[in-house]
């Protein structure tokens, strides 16, 4: 069961970390690249320090907006505690972003962790780079050059 032609990406972290923004950029880039995309998240408590998660599914045909546990291809976690909490979603071959959290301190601005992670993700997804740049401009809208520079740092990893 499950649809193997779909990329399942689970973004998680806590309120205010840019988790939802990262998922939005990826979703917009994928839509602009011609993929069918479904994204699901819950708003309301995000700014009050609670857990935040966003399910993003990209493919030729996507039904469920939610990822099935054990089928996430990427666990893009912004927080170690949240990685532990959401780890059961990761597929055996899935990529866990938790180890990349160590590299965040080396960034010129560690608040831009979301674009750094998007760069790492972009190098592993079939979405052309121009769509990423455009989505960053469209969704983040500020400090574009800085964001794209950090995106490229992530892409190079």
């Amino acid at each position: 069961m499950g649809n193997s032609n779909v990329y399942n990406i689970l973004f998680c972290g806590t309120g205010g970390q840019g988790v939802l923004k990262a998922s939005e950029v990826c979703g917009v880039a994928a839509v602009n690249a011609g993929f069918k995309v479904k994204k699901s998240e819950v708003h309301g408590m995000a700014q009050r320090g609670g857990s935040v998660e966003s399910h993003l599914r990209i493919g030729k045909e996507v039904y469920s907006p939610l990822i099935i546990p054990g089928q996430a291809d990427f666990l893009v976690s912004f927080h170690e505690d949240e990685s532990k909490r959401m780890n059961h979603f990761l597929s055996p071959q899935g990529v866990d972003f938790t180890p990349f959290l160590e590299k965040v301190n080396q960034l010129p601005d560690h608040r831009l962790v979301n674009t750094f992670f998007l760069g790492i993700l972009a190098s592993r997804l079939p979405i052309p780079e121009e769509h990423w740049h455009e989505a960053i401009k469209c969704v983040i809208g500020k400090k574009i050059d800085e964001n794209i520079a950090i995106f490229r740092m992530g892409f190079a990893i």
């Binding site: 309120g15 408590m45 700014q47 546990p69």
Partner: peptide
């Protein structure tokens, strides 16, 4: 409901109790 519930519903099984470990929201 979640996608993984559907096969359990078809088999007539009850919901498995999952304890939420989500970080609780607090006043800002």
């Amino acid at each position: 409901l979640q996608p993984q519930d559907i096969p359990r519903i078809v088999e007539g099984l009850p919901r498995t109790e999952v304890k939420s470990t989500a970080r609780k929201p607090v006043l800002c």
